[in-house]
Lab assay of single mutants.
Amino acid sequence: MATKAVCVLKGDGPVQGIINFEQKESNGPVKVWGSIKGLTEGLHGFHVHEFGDNTAGCTSAGPHFNPLSRKHGGPKDEERHVGDLGNVTADKDGVADVSIEDSVISLSGDHCIIGRTLVVHEKADDLGKGGNEESTKTGNAGSRLACGVIGIAQ
């Protein structure tokens, strides 16, 4: 089992970053940390998408990683996509320092995120509470600013 993974985020604009993942036990939580720069100040949706395909930019990554066919939600919700990591918060300089621990994603097994795409979005994720159909699919997080395929790390 891989215990570490990394993702280099890039987009068409100024947004870029490096996100690290570490899972010490196969059924334990995954620590997610790193930094994203070039964002507007505020909240930005942060999700693992189904495919590791960036051939047409971030759009070819498909929908959120959702092997259990659930509705979109927040990272602490029972009803959520596996890939729903909530929001990252950018400061006035456009930098989001990421520090998350998640017990639904994994670096092995059915919820493995390796080979899938991590995406940072234009807007805040409403965590499935926006009151419309799009909220239950995407959290109304808007366009995909930057993305990268999650790969095994040393």
Rank of each mutant, 00 (worst) to 15 (best):
V82P: 04
S69D: 10
V149D: 02
T3Y: 10
K123S: 11
R80T: 05
K10C: 10
K31M: 03
G42C: 08
K123C: 10
F51G: 15
A90T: 06
R116G: 04
T117E: 12
V95F: 12
K31N: 13
V88H: 01
A141G: 10
S60V: 14
T117W: 14
W33G: 08
F21V: 01
G94V: 05
C7P: 00
H72C: 03
G42S: 04
I100Y: 08
A61H: 11
E41K: 15
S108T: 12
E50A: 12
T89P: 07
Q23H: 09
H47W: 00
E25V: 05
K129D: 15
T55Q: 02
N20P: 02
G34M: 00
N132L: 13
G83K: 15
A61I: 14
C147N: 04
G13A: 09
I150N: 02
A90C: 14
K10R: 13
I150H: 00
S135M: 07
V30A: 01
Q16D: 15
V98Q: 01
T117Y: 15
G38V: 03
K71I: 08
S103T: 12
T89H: 14
E101S: 12
V82D: 02
S60D: 13
G83D: 06
H64M: 15
D97K: 06
G74P: 15
I113Q: 00
A124R: 10
R70T: 09
T59C: 11
N66H: 03
R144M: 09
D77N: 12
E25G: 08
G139N: 15
I18K: 15
K76A: 10
N20H: 06
V32Q: 01
E78Q: 08
N140L: 10
P67L: 00
E122T: 08
I150K: 00
T136K: 11
G130C: 12
D77S: 10
S135R: 08
V119N: 02
D84F: 06
Q16C: 05
I36K: 02
N20G: 07
G151D: 06
H111G: 10
S143M: 08
L68R: 14
D97M: 14
W33N: 11
C147G: 09
G62C: 14
N87T: 12
R144K: 13
L127H: 04
F51K: 15
T55M: 10
W33L: 10
K137E: 06
G38W: 00
G62H: 14
T55D: 14
A124K: 09
E101V: 11
V95C: 12
A5M: 00
L145E: 11
G131K: 14
R116I: 04
E22V: 07
V120M: 01
L145T: 14
N140V: 05
R116D: 00
V8A: 09
L107R: 00
Q23M: 06
G83Y: 15
A96S: 08
F65R: 06
L68P: 04
P75K: 01
A146T: 01
H111T: 11
E25D: 11
G109E: 01
N54Q: 10
K129T: 13
H81V: 00
F51N: 05
N132G: 09
F46P: 01
L39Q: 05
C7N: 02
D97F: 15
A5Q: 04
E79S: 15
N66G: 09
L43G: 08
V32H: 03
H72W: 03
G52W: 15
G34V: 06
G142C: 10
R144D: 07
N27T: 04
D84N: 14
G13Q: 04
